[in-house]
Write a protein that binds this DNA or RNA. Structure first.
Length: 877
RNA sequence: GGUCGAUUAGCUCAGUUGGCAGAGCACCGGCCUCACAUGCCGGGGGUCGCUGGUUCGAGUCCAGCAUCGACCACCA
């Protein structure tokens, strides 16, 4: 049973007012179940998983852009007969969410340690419950047709089970392991970060040359001198060969230290003095060198960013303060050779921008190398297609150079690592279920305190949301998903991880296509950020211009570049487009009296055949563009057709028949053409502008309950080339008169007298549609193959025919003479250019025949026009 | 240091196998023509960053240069 359509306000306003329409339709669609996929249906599947937004976040421009594109695809495929599933969900966003709640606590004068782990996590859950609905409401506001009955959260029960399953499996396969390694540590967030979570920033620093006994070397981190356990030189460096293998006793700030000199390929002999100090505890390169040469690790900087007890008299001092002090102290001891200014990249925490400290600690890792090889192959052999293809190289490069992924985080909010430590016998047990006692010794266990990197769970998203590890019907039907739509900023974080996990665990790629879109910037091209205060709120834009206008703007801007700029002016333009559509529909609806849906359906006359043909072409163009993810082309095709072809030409032409009552049958056919064209265009446009199209579709004669579930238009006939050519000639005639009117500054109210000297081929056509030309050009037209040009007339060229617009008593003939002289000069130039081209044998002999013919035609046209213009001069004079 | 991208009208940008340079906005002129002034009609405006090359023909392909930008990177 079809629920009743929401009642529409009776009078149709002359401006489109989006708010009421949007409020009315979204709940209606949802309630009717249109958003729901049906794994049991026989329809072919089409599935997109949403990039899960932060559960406690708010909708920003990036979301709006990303979601609009997905909704366009999903609505298109749903209308096109697919069982379309847009899988929604949210992400727990580990560190981001934890930081927010920590801030809330701070406002109460408390820290997370004051409340304790359990209470803290409970509090985050509470915050999630309170604020988690906000982002979802905002998605709905945008019109997103997600299947809300399948809403998931990265920390819900099912997904948590998937996370454990994956962890245990990879552990059992030896792909997850613990290791003492040098990591990126954020002293403020008090957690380890993956390589991806470290941002690089160029900064000015001092390059300090320090004397190390007989050697001198440069460093930007003098404070780590306290942790030095070696020096390194290049193995082939003759300058230092004598020192390799020796242990040097050298004076330092806190008494003499002994360092071993080693030879290592990692040293660049060209840089600095060709000697480096080796601090295995505080530098990744040094850590590797130390490992290779058995140098001890000396940790002098702690997890709090302050010097440790091992730093002697500097213990407890901040690391940057220590840097200054050490330089001063070395200076005093005469151990500084000299200092140079230096610019280099420092690593910053992506969250809080604190300088990351490389520190050695024990963490959990995934050996992603073997997974990456499979993920690389999937793209190479075409199982996954990246669009635009330029991003493939970025993906490849990262995959090829991938390093172990550090997945443990010293946070409380997230998936706790399913590993239990037995303090009694030191054993570690990884398990799908919680363990109470040590399986080896029966002793007490404590669960690993760390949680997993947020991206570990989002990496499972394409299959965990469909029910994995259970073998659900949804998983069987919708995996692999059809396309993943996302920005290039998370290719590594997310796309790469999903590819690796999906291929490894499901043995099949998680998505066939990856559509990488641009990032949204403000009108000046600046990245939007809260600190810059240039954040444009999508909700404000929607409130001001309407959701449809906003969505259409995003689609129209979605060219496959690096970034797009959004501005009010642009949205306003498409708001006007929505209004144009509204008014076009208003015109049609107001002239539907006597409309008989069963009446004559043949397009009415030449204009009818023409607009029908243009519609067919538009359908083909839009479909092709959507299939290729060329959203901007699709949007432009509809915009152009609706505004220029339908509104500017066809509606104006149709008015003639609609406002006349002497030809009921003709009127009937025009009504039919109008209804068909408009109704079809609405369906074509629906994925982009869901609300206004539904509202108007419901008011027009239609079949079905909702445009959302109506079929997407299909081209039924080929374009009508004859109609297009013939209409082009009529339009040219109208434009020619209007053009003369404009150039002569004649009022539109001024009716003109025009005679047309028709060429034989065009006479029947022009004669048959003289009324149409007269109406659109506001002129009295006489057709006569033997017409003689009247004195003081302007010439219009229409195909092979000529048009004489009488100007006597209407215009300044001297000005017209001037204009003609200018025109003549232009044709003379064009003729010279084309003749020159045709005179070159290399062109005429080697270019394809049709190109040469085209040039010849062009020349003939120029010559004919020239002759006519010259003739015109005498008429004007 | 490496990789990739951008450079087209005043502005923001399209331009998919090389074949007559486009759109929106802005601008100029004329219109309250009974769907729409969030509108209608007409118009002006571009050595397609620079220099070479390939080609009958280059905005498009190749090489180099310049400027801007993004990403990756363990020269301390």
């Amino acid at each position: 049973m079809t629920p009743p359509s929401p009642s529409a306000p009776a009078p149709i306003a002359d401006r489109y007012e989006p708010a009421a329409v949007e409020e009315r339709w979204y709940p209606e669609w949802e309630q009717r179940g249109y958003f729901r996929a049906d794994p049991a249906s026989a329809k072919p599947p089409y599935c997109i998983v949403i990039p899960p937004p932060n559960v406690t976040g708010a909708l920003h421009m990036g979301h709006a852009f990303n979601l609009t594109l997905q909704d366009v695809l999903i609505r298109h495929k749903r209308m096109d007969g697919f069982d379309a599933l847009w899988q929604p969900g949210t992400d727990h966003a580990g560190i981001a969410t934890q930081v927010v709640v920590e801030r809330q606590l701070a406002a109460e004068g408390k820290t997370k340690d004051d409340v304790g782990r359990e209470a803290f996590v409970a509090r985050v859950w509470k915050w999630k419950e309170e604020s988690g609905g906000s982002i979802l409401r905002q998605l709905k506001r945008l019109g997103a047709s997600c299947d809300w009955s399948r809403l998931r959260f990265t920390m819900d029960e099912g997904l948590s089970r998937a996370v454990r399953e994956v962890f245990v499996r990879l552990y059992d396969e030896g792909l997850i392991y613990r290791d003492d390694y040098i990591v990126n540590w954020c002293p403020r967030c008090q957690t380890v970060l993956s390589d991806l979570e470290v941002e690089r920033e160029e900064r000015d620093a001092e390059f300090v040359y320090i004397k190390y006994g007989p050697l001198t070397l440069g460093t930007v981190r003098p404070e780590t001198k306290l942790g030095d356990t070696g020096l390194a030189v290049h193995p082939n460096d003759p300058r230092y060969a004598q020192y390799v293998g020796r242990t040097l006793e050298i004076p330092s700030v806190d008494g003499p230290i002994s360092v071993k000199v080693v030879a290592d390929e990692a040293v660049d002999p060209e840089f600095g003095t060709g000697v480096i100090k080796v601090t295995p505890g505080h530098d990744p390169v040094d850590f590797e060198i130390g490992k290779r040469h058995g140098l001890p690790i000396r940790t002098v900087i702690g997890f709090d960013g302050k010097m440790t007890a091992a730093a002697g008299k500097y213990a407890g001092l901040d690391r940057f303060e220590t840097r200054k002090r050490i330089v001063e102290d070395l200076q005093a001891l005469g151990l500084i050779d000299h200092i140079e200014p230096y610019r280099h990249a420092v690593g910053l925490c992506y969250r809080c921008k604190t300088v990351v400290e490389p520190l050695v600690s024990k963490q959990w890792y995934v050996n992603v190398k073997p997974l990456a090889e499979v993920a690389l192959a999937a793209v190479r052999d075409g199982r996954i297609t990246i669009i635009p293809p330029g991003w493939t190289k970025t993906y490849d490069h990262w995959m090829e150079n991938i390093r172990p992924w550090c997945i443990s985080r010293q946070l409380w909010w997230g998936h706790r690592i399913p590993a239990w430590h037995c303090d009694a016998d030191g054993s570690i047990h990884v398990s799908r279920t919680d363990l109470a006692a040590c399986p080896t010794c029966g002793g007490a266990l404590r669960q690993d305190p760390d949680v997993l990197d947020t991206w570990f769970s989002s990496g499972l998203w394409p299959f965990s949301t469909l029910g994995w590890p259970d073998e659900t019907t949804a998983l069987a039907k919708y995996y692999p998903t059809s396309v993943l739509v996302t920005g290039f900023d998370i290719i590594f974080f997310w796309v790469a991880r999903m590819a690796m996990f999906g291929l490894h665990l499901m043995k099949e790629e998680p998505f066939r296509d990856v559509y990488i879109h641009a990032l949204v910037r403000d009108a000046e091209g600046q990245k939007m950020s809260k600190s810059k205060g240039n954040v444009v709120d999508p909700l404000a834009i929607m409130a001001k211009y309407g959701t449809d206008a906003f969505r259409f703007t995003l689609a129209a801007l979605a060219a496959q570049g690096r970034d797009i700029r959004i501005s009010d002016e642009r949205v306003e333009g498409y708001r006007n487009f929505a209004n144009k559509l509204w008014n076009a529909a208003r015109l049609v609806l107001s002239t539907l009296d006597g409309y008989d849906p069963a009446g004559d359906t043949a397009p009415a006359g030449l204009p009818g055949r023409w607009v029908a043909s243009r519609l067919q072409t538009t359908i083909v163009d839009v479909r092709q563009a959507l299939d290729a993810y060329r959203f901007n082309d699709a949007a432009a095709a509809i915009y152009q057709f609706l505004w220029n072809d339908v509104c500017d030409w066809y509606l104006e032409i149709a008015k003639g028949a609609l406002y006349r009552s002497d030809d009921p049958a003709g009127r009937q056919r025009v009504q039919h053409t109008l209804v068909t064209v408009l109704e079809t265009t609405l369906r074509l446009l629906h994925p982009f502008m869901p609300f206004i199209t539904e509202e108007l579709w419901q008011r027009l004669p239609h079949q079905g309950d909702s445009i959302m579930v109506a079929p997407y238009p299909t081209a039924t006939t080929a374009a009508d080339a004859d109609a297009e050519r013939e209409m082009a000639l009529l339009m040219q005639a109208v434009t020619a008169v209007r053009n003369i009117r404009g150039e002569m500054r004649l009022s539109p109210a001024q009716s003109l007298t025009v005679s047309v000297k028709t060429a034989a081929a065009d006479e029947p056509l022009l004669r048959a549609h003289v009324g149409l030309i007269e109406a659109l050009a506001r002129a009295k037209i006489t057709i006569d193959p033997r017409a003689v040009r009247p004195p003081a007339s302007a010439l219009g060229v229409v195909g092979a025919s000529e048009m004489y617009v009488e100007l006597a008593g209407l215009v300044d003939l001297a000005a017209e003479r001037q204009r003609l002289e200018k025109e003549i000069k232009r044709t003379v130039d064009a003729i010279a250019f084309t003749r020159g081209k045709l005179a070159r044998p290399d062109f005429t002999e080697r270019a394809p025949a049709e190109i040469v013919d085209k040039e010849r035609e062009k020349l003939a046209e120029h010559e004919a026009l020239h002759a006519k213009l010259v003739a015109s001069l005498s008429w004007v004079g």
